[in-house]
């Protein structure tokens, strides 16, 4: 029953986020600040992880190609498919649930604990619109992060495969282009866009409705990470089922 209550409360929060808007001038500043915190601030870690995981995918594929009948082009093909279909949109979103999600939960939770949210409400400001809406708008830029992750993941795979001596550049590039289905890119970005909404709203929900002190802020961040990850995995399953099968 608690879960059902929380799910209902989550949807009511989303509804409340889009009504009674904050003054446009103030909102614009908040959106730019959130883009800086959530998007620009995540580029470094995303680039680092993507590059090296891309490399590992290529090496693992190469090391498992023990049968000489299987062409070396498969390394490029497998790297592309892994990075574009799952690693960049899903795996990175789970990492972002830890990085961005816990930042959102702890910052909003701290505002709750220190009565800053009460201060906003006393002034007659819709605190949900003020705090959550800019995060949702900022996270609309999250697909750009994933596009960069896709590029760097494949670049990492190329460098690891070619300079690691597992395949030639021509073989890798041939595999990379082989059987390319453009819809896979659309599929990846559709789910990224949905994940970005989950990444902005679920951690906000856990921060906004938390009660207690510093310890509870920590607990809320952990709970938020768990629920955001679970939601991403479940939603990923259903989107994949709907769009690819």
């Amino acid at each position: 029953m608690t879960y059902l209550h929380d799910i209902g409360k989550y949807f009511l929060m989303i509804k409340e986020t889009f009504v009674k808007p904050t003054k446009g001038k103030v909102l614009r500043v908040l959106i730019f600040k959130e883009i800086d915190d959530l998007i620009i601030g995540s580029l470094g870690i995303v680039a680092f992880i993507s590059f090296f995981v891309g490399g590992v995918v290529a090496i693992q594929t190469a090391l498992n190609l023990t049968n000489p009948i299987i062409p070396k082009e498969l390394i490029g093909f497998a790297s592309r498919q892994s990075v574009i279909l799952e690693f960049a949109p899903t795996f990175l979103s789970i990492i972002m649930a830890g990085k961005v999600g816990s930042f959102i939960t702890s910052s909003i939770g701290t505002m709750r604990v220190t009565e800053q949210i009460d201060a906003l409400e006393v002034m007659g400001i819709n605190s949900l619109n003020y705090l959550v809406f800019p995060k949702i708008v900022a996270m609309c830029f999250y697909p750009f992060v994933i596009a960069i992750a896709m590029f760097l993941g494949i670049l990492g795979a190329y460098i690891a495969a070619v300079y690691g001596g597992f395949t030639t550049a021509d073989q890798f590039l041939t595999g990379l282009k082989d059987d390319f289905i453009p819809f896979h890119i659309s599929y990846a970005f559709i789910k990224t866009f949905i994940f970005s909404f989950l990444l902005a709203t679920i951690p906000s929900f856990h921060g906004f409705y938390m009660r207690g002190g510093a310890l509870e802020v920590g607990k809320a961040s952990t709970t938020s990470f768990v629920w955001t990850s679970v939601s991403i995995i479940v939603v990923n399953y259903f989107i994949t089922q709907m769009l690819l099968s």
């Binding site: 904050t22 103030v26 220190t114 800053q116 201060a119 002034m123």
Partner: peptide, 27 residues
């Protein structure tokens, strides 16, 4: 309404001046 909270409830990310200007910016 003006409200002074027990723990002051100042916005952490804003300077003293920005905190004070906040209600003016909003209203």
């Amino acid at each position: 309404i003006g409200m002074v909270f027990q723990g002051s409830a100042l916005f952490d990310s804003m300077t003293v001046e920005e905190n004070i200007m906040f209600p003016l910016q909003m209203f």
